[in-house]
Amino acid sequence: MNDGDDQAVRIELARLRQEHRDLDAAIDALTKLGNSDSLQIQRLKKRKLALKDRIGFLEDQVVPDIIA
């Protein structure tokens, strides 16, 4: 991976991490309301999980697993 690709991946990682934090805050806020839409919360949690998987994939791209 060259420096340009590496920088692009790091920018994408930062964006995805921010979106993940935003979803976490939204889920917490909806949950605290008590009378919130459970389907909406389920969709947000599913999106959050997909983001986590994508973040993990990109982190592996930036920091390759080194076998000692």
Results as ranks from 00 to 15, higher is better:
Met1Asp: 14
Met1His: 11
Met1Pro: 11
Asn2Arg: 04
Asn2Pro: 03
Asp3Arg: 14
Asp3Tyr: 10
Asp3Lys: 12
Gly4Cys: 10
Asp5Phe: 13
Asp5Asn: 13
Asp6Ala: 13
Ala8Met: 05
Ala8Tyr: 04
Val9Ala: 03
Val9Cys: 03
Arg10Ile: 03
Arg10Thr: 02
Ile11His: 14
Ile11Phe: 13
Glu12Ala: 09
Glu12Cys: 04
Leu13Trp: 01
Leu13Thr: 01
Leu13Met: 03
Arg15Ile: 06
Arg15Leu: 09
Leu16Ser: 02
Arg17Cys: 07
Arg17Phe: 03
Glu19Pro: 01
His20Met: 00
His20Cys: 00
Arg21Cys: 05
Arg21Lys: 12
Asp22Asn: 11
Asp22Val: 06
Asp22Arg: 03
Asp22Thr: 06
Ala25Asp: 08
Ala25Gly: 10
Ala25Tyr: 02
Ala26Arg: 14
Ile27Gly: 00
Asp28Gly: 08
Asp28Phe: 04
Asp28Ser: 11
Ala29Phe: 08
Leu30Thr: 05
Thr31Asn: 11
Thr31Trp: 05
Thr31Val: 10
Thr31Gln: 13
Thr31Ala: 11
Lys32Asp: 14
Lys32Ala: 15
Lys32Gly: 11
Leu33Glu: 15
Leu33Gly: 14
Gly34Thr: 07
Gly34Ile: 08
Gly34Trp: 08
Gly34Asn: 07
Asn35Ala: 13
Asn35Gln: 14
Ser36Leu: 05
Ser36Ile: 04
Asp37Asn: 12
Leu39Lys: 13
Ile41Leu: 01
Ile41Lys: 01
Gln42Leu: 09
Arg43Thr: 07
Arg43Val: 07
Arg43Ile: 07
Arg43Asn: 10
Leu44Ser: 04
Leu44Ala: 07
Leu44Tyr: 11
Lys46Thr: 15
Lys46Phe: 12
Arg47Gly: 00
Arg47Val: 00
Arg47Ala: 01
Arg47Asn: 02
Lys48Ser: 02
Lys48Pro: 01
Lys48His: 05
Leu49Cys: 03
Ala50Met: 08
Ala50Val: 05
Ala50Cys: 07
Ala50Ser: 11
Ala50Gln: 09
Ala50Ile: 05
Ala50Phe: 05
Leu51Val: 00
Asp53Cys: 09
Asp53Glu: 12
Asp53Ile: 10
Arg54Gly: 03
Arg54Ala: 07
Arg54Pro: 03
Ile55Trp: 01
Ile55Cys: 02
Ile55Val: 06
Gly56Ile: 04
Gly56Pro: 05
Gly56Met: 09
Phe57Ala: 15
Phe57Lys: 15
Leu58Ile: 03
Glu59Leu: 06
Glu59Asp: 12
Glu59Val: 08
Asp60Ile: 05
Asp60His: 09
Asp60Thr: 09
Gln61Glu: 12
Gln61His: 09
Gln61Val: 11
Gln61Asp: 07
Val62Thr: 07
Val63Cys: 10
Val63Leu: 12
Pro64Asp: 10
Pro64Met: 07
Pro64Gly: 06
Pro64Tyr: 05
Asp65Asn: 15
Asp65Gln: 14
Ile66Leu: 15
Ile66Met: 11
Ile66Gly: 09
Ile67Asn: 08
Ile67Asp: 12
Ala68Lys: 14
Ala68Glu: 15
Ala68Leu: 14
